[in-house]
Nucleic acid binder design. Structure first.
Lengths: 186, 186
DNA sequence: GTCTATATTAAGATAGAC
DNA sequence: GTCTATCTTAATATAGAC
């Protein structure tokens, strides 16, 4: 990576923005080259597996983002209410107030490799576990906590679709506003 | 349309299945030719505007499906509970028990024309109105009914994403199970 | 109305200079 | 590590026979 114009994390971040916007099949190497400022041949040097491998790097980049902005904040100190508020803030930024699609949605259409599907599923399962854990901590029983986590993430994903189709970010902001009560109320 | 192998509705239906599975950019004319049994040149004869026009026909086909399977049943006779159950049944079939993505989701990624975006938005707005109307009929105030309709459709869209990523249809079936109480309970 | 054949552009991918 | 140049395949799109 000596003399690299972009380090791996920055590169994966740019790729993520492209994949979440255009989906797997809609993300061409030309678009990735434009988004990263690197030529196609340079992308192949960094990712010999081509688009599949770049998509995997993007998926790993989201997983790392989840780790830093959801899992760690939820396990930190302070009241659950406070911690959830912090996560809500991070999610709002990550999804650009509802203007940016979720890569779990856009990368999961048919076209990608099975490795990619596995990576996306694993990231989503971790997200579900983190939300369920904080709901358990707030007094919900494990079964109910799991359902609430699923509802919470389902609300976020669904509201992102509505926001995109309607061209209106309010559904997404509402889903975030309801996140706290969903994970905390018995 | 004389001597046509497929009438326009059948053609649009096949196209819809392809678009919802692969998204706009992932749907090539080769895939459409395979899905319809027509050669690419024949598709251009039927839809001189190419892929954009075929996507528009697919969007119109969903809109017509919504009309027949959501709007009309919800305005029919019988108790609201019964009518909603009928719509739930239709939705469960349409989404293949949660195995088939929603075209509002997969066709709304960047890549399609603005006409297509408008058609998708219009279809979603009609769906929202139909759900809000039945919620009003069940005694909810217009503002609250509108929110419930948004929640209901958001749940469906989000649970379809979860189901697809997790490879598990249960989230979708749960979102349908909750549809009735969402639209009917004060 | 559908077909085969073909033109044209863009995609994924590699070779080799610097 | 990145670049220009190039190869190969697949994409969109059209011409013309039947």
């Amino acid at each position: 990576m000596a003399n690299a114009k972009l380090n791996d994390a920055e590169l994966a971040g740019r790729a993520l923005e492209t994949f979440r916007t255009y989906g797997f099949e809609g993300t061409s190497l030309n678009r990735l080259a434009e988004a990263t400022g690197l030529e196609k041949a340079s992308l192949y040097y960094r990712f010999p597996g081509g688009k599949d491998e770049i998509a995997m790097a993007a998926a790993a980049h989201v997983a790392a983002w989840f780790e830093r902005n959801i899992f760690i904040p939820l396990e930190a100190g302070g009241s659950p209410e406070r911690r959830i508020r912090s996560v809500v803030h991070n999610l709002r930024e990550f999804y650009g107030d509802g203007t940016k699609p979720c890569v779990l949605d856009t990368l999961s259409l048919r076209g990608g490799s099975s490795h990619l599907s596995n990576a996306l599923r694993s990231a989503l399962e971790q997200w579900l576990s983190a939300f369920a854990a904080v709901a358990v901590e707030c007094g919900l029983r494990p079964d109910k906590a799991k359902l609430r986590a699923e509802q919470a993430i389902g609300n976020i994903e669904g509201s992102l679709v509505l926001a995109r189709v309607l061209g209106d970010s309010k559904p997404f902001l509402r889903s975030l506003a309801e996140l706290g009560s969903l994970l905390r109320q018995p």
